[in-house]
Simulated scan of single mutants.
Amino acid sequence: MKSWIKAFRLRTLPLAIAGWLVGISLAGNDTTLNYATAILTLFTAILLQILSNLANDYGDASSGVDENRTGETRMVSSGKISARAMKNAMVLFSLLSFITGSYLLHLAFPDDWTSALIFLLIGMVGIGAAIKYTVGKNPYGYAGFGDVFVFLFFGIVLVFGTYYIQSAQMNWGILLPASSIGLFSVGVLNVNNIRDIESDRKAGKNSVPVRIGRERAIVYHKILLNGGMLFSILFVYLNFRSWVGLLFILVSFLFYKNIKAVATKPAQELDPYLKQMAISTLLFSVLFSIGQIASWFY
């Protein structure tokens, strides 16, 4: 059981919670929340996050990327979980994600088949993308496109999708805070990839840091974190109701600490900052959501 819990990589789950929380708080500005669909949305997002982590564990072990890893030990490569058992777990979580997602759409869009089918297609693409990230021939995560997947699914799809499921409204301004969560989530991946830059290079995993080098990856990291903060500041400026909406700026010092660590510490010392970045993103979402909840009463 301990091995499976490690394979789930619980320290990455704050990303799923963060995107959901921002989407829910934004939806509360425009509609009365449906708590059943809200909980199902969160549950489905967490299942997809775990599926992605399991697939990553299996895929990296199969490709040999784990042989010189500097971060935490993966379960398949260490022999604590067999490759067959991991594949079975991937099938199980794919089915669970599909079931909970389908029931969510049934509750959210009982008379709107168009929206239900669009979200069903997005969900199926998400399941496939989570697996294809590091599994199979030519996984796109090894070609440097993992950042795009993380930005789209943990940012745009999760935040905007959570908002739309509640409100059934196309508010394009939501793309600003959705982009913030997407960029911070890519920041978590970037810390991971900078940490593993040497082992990934040897294994032929061409992540963004491998492609552009560590120095440019540090600049890229600064752009991700500063850009994410600026998008949300712009959103609050355009939809200003109270200064409470800017509470999330308090997280800036944590992002600065993360940037400083990525820029100055050797790769083997970066592992704690992956968790720190994930927790900082969750804290950002909590403070952002408090600001939005406060605006419900204006």
Rank of each mutant, 00 (worst) to 15 (best):
F8H: 08
T12E: 05
A18T: 06
W20C: 03
L33V: 12
N34F: 04
N34H: 11
F43P: 00
L47M: 06
L48M: 14
D57N: 10
D57W: 02
S63L: 10
V65C: 15
M86Q: 10
K87W: 15
L92Y: 13
L104A: 03
H106Y: 15
F109Y: 13
S115Q: 10
L117R: 06
L121E: 03
I122T: 11
A129Q: 05
K137V: 13
N138Q: 15
N138C: 11
Y140T: 02
G141L: 09
V148E: 01
L152R: 02
V157M: 01
L158R: 01
G161T: 02
Y163E: 05
Q166K: 07
Q169C: 01
Q169V: 11
W172R: 00
I174N: 08
L175A: 05
L176F: 14
A178W: 09
I181H: 10
G182K: 03
V186K: 03
G187L: 07
G187F: 07
V188M: 07
N190Y: 02
R195A: 00
D196K: 04
S199P: 04
R201A: 15
G204F: 08
S207Y: 02
P209V: 04
V210E: 01
I212T: 02
I212V: 12
A217K: 03
H221G: 01
N226P: 00
M229H: 14
I233C: 11
L234M: 15
Y237K: 10
F240C: 00
F240T: 10
S252N: 12
V262P: 12
V262Y: 03
V262S: 05
A267V: 08
I279P: 08
V286R: 11
V286M: 11
L287W: 11
W296H: 11
